[in-house]
């Protein structure tokens, strides 16, 4: 949970100051290194919540997000839901990739001895 919260904080803060790519990569590295267990899915969820949360706030504030999504999709020759999906998938994939590579190099991963079931699934 801590990894998730830290991920959300890094991504939201980094995006706020205008460094979206760096924040996604940074969140992946930090979470992957510090909380290697299920780091990729943790930080992916954090990215979805951070960016998707902003869209939800926009909707709640009455901003024309749905109409804009349709127009953006149309502008790119895609269906109207595609920009929403891309806005959630893109940060998730980027952050998760960074997290996966970071956890591979993490000393904490080497110190961690996962339960048998988890070891078998390979999802450490």
């Amino acid at each position: 949970m801590r990894g998730f919260l830290v991920g959300v904080a890094i991504i939201a803060g980094g995006t706020w100051i205008g460094a979206p790519t760096l924040s996604l990569l940074g969140a992946g590295v930090v979470v992957g290194a510090a909380w290697p267990r299920r780091a990729a899915r943790t930080v992916a969820a954090a990215a979805v919540v951070a960016w998707g949360g902003v869209l939800i706030v926009y909707v709640l504030r009455g901003y024309p997000v749905l109409a804009l999504g349709r127009k953006l999709g149309g502008a790119m020759g895609l269906p109207g839901w595609a920009p929403f999906l891309a806005t959630l998938l893109y940060p998730a994939v980027l952050a998760a990739s960074a997290a996966w590579l970071a956890q591979l190099a993490s000393p904490r991963r080497r110190a961690y001895d996962p339960p048998a079931g988890e070891r078998a699934s390979g999802l450490t």
Binding site: T15, W16, G18, P20, T21, L24, W51, G52, V54, L55, Y58, R61, Y63, P64, V65, A67, L68, L72, P83, A86, T87, Y90, P91
Partner: peptide
Amino acid sequence: PLSPLLDPLNGAWAAAA
């Protein structure tokens, strides 16, 4: 560039805000 485009705070979505 995808980040400046999809960034919900400062990217294309900001047009809605």
